[in-house]
Write a protein that binds this DNA or RNA. Sequence first.
DNA 1: ACTAATTTGTTGAGGTGGGCAACGTATCAC
DNA 2: GTGATACGTTGCCCACCTCAACAAATTAGT
Lengths: 396, 396
Amino acid sequence: MDAMQGNNHDDVRRHNLSIILRLVHRDGAASRAQLTRLTGLNRSTIGALVAELAEHGLVEERTPDPTKLAGRPSPIVAASDRVVAIAVNPEIDAVTVGVVALSGVVHRRIRWAVSSVPSAAEAVSLTAGIVTELRRDLEQYSIIGIGVAVPGLVRASDGLVRLAPHLGWVDEPFCDLLAAATGLPVVAANDASLGANAERYFGAGRGMTDVIYLNGGASGIGGGLIVGGAVAGGLAGYAGEFGHTRVSSGSSTDSAGIAGTLEAEVTRAALLDVLGLRGSETDADALERALLASDSPVVRAEVARQLDFLAVALASAVNVLNPQLIVLGGFLAALHAADADRLSSAVGALALGAAFEGVQITPAQLGSNLLVIAAAELAFEALLLDPQTIVGNISG
Amino acid sequence: MDAMQGNNHDDVRRHNLSIILRLVHRDGAASRAQLTRLTGLNRSTIGALVAELAEHGLVEERTPDPTKLAGRPSPIVAASDRVVAIAVNPEIDAVTVGVVALSGVVHRRIRWAVSSVPSAAEAVSLTAGIVTELRRDLEQYSIIGIGVAVPGLVRASDGLVRLAPHLGWVDEPFCDLLAAATGLPVVAANDASLGANAERYFGAGRGMTDVIYLNGGASGIGGGLIVGGAVAGGLAGYAGEFGHTRVSSGSSTDSAGIAGTLEAEVTRAALLDVLGLRGSETDADALERALLASDSPVVRAEVARQLDFLAVALASAVNVLNPQLIVLGGFLAALHAADADRLSSAVGALALGAAFEGVQITPAQLGSNLLVIAAAELAFEALLLDPQTIVGNISG
DNA sequence: ACTAATTTGTTGAGGTGGGCAACGTATCAC
DNA sequence: GTGATACGTTGCCCACCTCAACAAATTAGT
């Protein structure tokens, strides 16, 4: 019952600043007049709030757009390009570091390839090096903090990486190490959960409150949930592991050693195999093109097989969560593109009619910027929650 | 983005009144001193807020408990016994109507048996009759409204009963009809979702934020979710249908005609069958006693078979939702009691280690009062959200 | 029993911040 | 130009929370 907190006047101010900053961050620039309508606040209040945000450098006021409407034009309020978060995404073959502005602009994206799977310590020192370099270039920018998208289970309470199977990390305090190395606040979460959130705000699920996101990677299937408008993390932040849902009575096992699961039956490797492609040379787009181009019955059969298994997992999720949107990323997007109708009708046959009513299945939209935007969003969260306090602690 | 609302001063007052009323409603009576600590508000503010709630008759202040502590004793604030909601639960063989006070006391529970499955119109007129009767007895009570727990899918936006398979109701505007017949505000939701909420606040899941609730009834398995501290309804309020999760490749079908689902494999009827019992004569307790008393290998095998299938569904749910508690009601509680260790280890074997860490599986606690409390809670929600406004609209 | 210490209710003053209304200003239409 | 429209700006008001001082009710110690 810790959420049972009383409100005082400071909370009102904080909440109102938070809402305005969120609006211009998530939905893009808006005129002051639009903000008054969206928030229901008085226009004099909006004026004061925007002035305060502008004073802190969080938003900028631009000259009004010509609107062809009568009346005094309203200045455009836009999230700052100079307030940035650093996004980090360690993977088996590279560490990606990005710089994303509060305005949504991706200033930089640096993919630093590594020859062998990086240990946590290596990833920290590599990242810290890149960050030091970046800070020299970003002297007139304000760096809010670092957000890390980890391909594994991250404990929500303290950012400890409990298990990142592909990286071989177990109980690595990546956050604390990186914070110590850079002196910046660091927050981490599961990559797929962050991806779900990013797609919800900036991609295919814009404005939606109940979204299921599944991402198919080279080594497994991860996912994230938006339930009732909030990222569902579960007790410890491990929610969203759709890959280990049982979908068949087969004996092939997944990365966790569990048999008959989605991750065991639906794999990128099997698709590449029937297509005669090499994984290392085939990105998501190439796979999709190859699938669409092929008319081999073997390929079609494998696509159908995988789609039917995917449908089992999705149908269960639809029954349990009654989402309005299912977003598929990675090779699952390619699979979906190969035969969208089959997937949709298979899910429809296995799900309750009412729960599936109005459910859309779409590919992810954010592409290669997804995890950069997603991780930066995590770092921005503290600022969006409390613009006044956070901005006070930043150099400038 | 409709949730992007600004806060003004009225909202502060409303929020603070709401929080205090919620605290004394959900966690029982508390002293003013405790309320100051829990809310973080100033004690003078608490005094004013409690006085306002007391003036409206929503809470009562009692003489302090002897606490053995130094200092001036703090009066106890308790939710009123006289402010009540009416709970309604239509079933195939009866309509149950209850009267529950804001204090949590169940004043009445009337189970009106019917000889044939009631139509929506019959259930409405039956309920309205009982309510009229009750209102005569409850003249000095304030009736907040009516909450209905429906064994089926209820559209969240308007309370339309989309589908209640066992009752044979399709698109029945039960809420509107009952509201017209009684003149009271009526809200409805799925019985299992409401049950999950009630167990969370008043039963096995007290104070928890991520709970999965599954209820085994005579004709199927329903469920509800608490995700991140809120009831997860999904887009239209249909979330929680665990019964149709696929758990086997068998061909037996469930009530929706889908094969190999939890509801098809795990049934009360099959348990009664191996026990040689009649369903109509066996309530949940009797079933549990019979299961515990039996040492027949046939019974043990059936219990094991059903538990293993239940484990498949629960493991998927654990992976996806990372809950802290799984609550089992109805015949699933009996099944759990018959061999709790088998269920727990089977789920553990199929779920990711980290996600299953710390997950408890327990039987439901609220027993026969569950749905009465659950439905009343739904009716109370409007009052708890805005004590000032709602109480103004009530007769007294 | 009396005093000291402790905790809490009560009261009145103070201040923060949003609403409001009047006024000023920038655009469009004619 | 002139009017209409829409919006920013300003000063005042007020709701409501905090704070500090004081009063009240209890326990512990002598």
